[in-house]
Structures are given as C-alpha cells and as structure tokens.
Amino acid sequence: MSEHHPPLRSYGRLKSRAIKPRQAALMETLLPAIRAPGGPFDPRALMPDATEAWLEIGFGGGEHMAAQAARRPDVLVIGAEPFQNGVASALRHIDEQGLQNVRVHDGDVRELLARIPDASLERVFILFPDPWPKARHHKRRLLQADLAAELARVLKPRGRLRFASDWSDYVDWSLERLGKAFRWTAERPDDWRMPPADHVTTRYEEKRLGDCAPVFLDFIRD
C-alpha cells in the first residue's frame, strides 16, 4: 500500500447551497451507517457476500452510482465525493431505492485509496470530473499521473476503469495518463463515441456543458 501522498486539497466549495431538510436528516442518520471506515480496510469486509467491489470517484448527485448499485445488488459500490450537496443528494437516491450495497466516502478519494489494499477492486468509474479547462488550472484536475498509478495499484488484474468527459482537452489529457497505467480497449470510433451498454446517463451529462460530445474511455489493467 502506498505510504506517501501529497497534501490533500479540495478546489471549489465543499457546500454550494443549503441542503434540503430531508437530505440533511439523512446526513445525520443514513450517512454514519454507510460511511466507509476511517482506517485501513478491505472492501470485501464491508459486504462479504459481494461478487465484486466497485468505486465511483466524484459521484456528483449520485444518480449513476445508485443506478449501478440497483442493477447489481451483488456488487459492493463505494462512492467518493467531497461536496456535501452531492453526498446529500446521493443519500436520497440510496434511501429511496432501499440500497444495501452502497458505501460512501464523503471526502477526497485519495484519502480513501490510501486505506485500501492492493488489487482490491474490480471496477472504477470517473465520470465527467471538473475539467478545469484553463491551462493554468490543469494542476487542479483530479486525474494526474499519481492518481492513475494509485488506481492501477488498487485494481485487480483484468480490472476495468471507465473515464468519461465532454471536454476534448481533458479526454486527451486523461488518455495520455491512463494509457501509461492501463490498456485502452477501443477498437473503433464508436467505442468511445457511443455510451457503453451499461452506462447510465445523468441529468448533469444531458446538460452538455463541455466543448464536445461525451467521450467514453474504457481501460483494463493487464
């Protein structure tokens, strides 16, 4: 397990608006029950009968995470998100759907990764992260070389990683960094132009806030 990590820093606001009363109540009741452990842990220990363990990094409002967990109740889905409004929204989805296979880390994903052992995940999702499009802000992007290396550490051999973005520069940036740690599986343009069969489109994605159509990059850890 990695021992040295750069100082953690969250960019932007951790809370952007008032949290609705119902969601605020879930932050007090549901979140403590499903929060990922604060110390080192094996994801499988959280759900011993799980067939796989997945991680979604930056789950936004939690739509995709909840939908994937509902489709696959046999899979433990761990979500990491530092922004309180997103966590609160995700808790509503989890509560409404009665999901028992979701755990949440309400903080920086690097803190979470540092606590889990090598080769402990089968799948990782990084969907539409903040693109920080200005060149002087590229250092703020979530996906850096050190994170790619850490994800390669925690993924099992043949483990899968999906990155999606609607900012062309971030797609190129991510392909360069992830391509050094994983094998890109695309064989034809439709493999990155078309949403994968198991993708769940969210309201955020439908807003098309980027400068290109959504691009989906699927990778495998050899």
Rank of each mutant, 00 (worst) to 15 (best):
Y204K: 10
R103I: 08
K15V: 03
A50F: 09
Y170P: 07
P133E: 00
E52I: 13
P157E: 09
D172T: 07
S10K: 09
M27Q: 14
G210Q: 13
G107R: 10
A88P: 04
A45Y: 08
W167R: 01
V87E: 11
P37F: 08
E111C: 10
A145Y: 02
Q68W: 12
K207W: 08
A186Y: 05
D118E: 10
M1L: 12
A53D: 09
D190Y: 00
R188E: 15
R158A: 15
R92D: 13
N101Y: 07
L76S: 02
M65R: 00
V102N: 02
P131C: 06
R123N: 01
A197E: 13
A18N: 12
E63K: 11
E96G: 02
S174G: 13
G210A: 14
H199A: 15
F41H: 12
W184S: 08
E3G: 12
W132L: 07
A148E: 06
G38F: 03
I19Y: 02
K156H: 04
E122G: 15
F125I: 02
R44A: 13
T29H: 07
A152Y: 03
P32K: 03
K134V: 01
W173F: 15
R193N: 00
L26G: 01
D172R: 10
A135K: 07
E111D: 15
R71L: 12
E96D: 14
L161Y: 04
L209Y: 02
E3N: 15
L143T: 08
P48S: 04
A181L: 05
R35Q: 09
V87F: 08
K180M: 11
H4P: 05
E176W: 08
A36K: 01
A152P: 01
G159D: 11
T202G: 10
T202A: 08
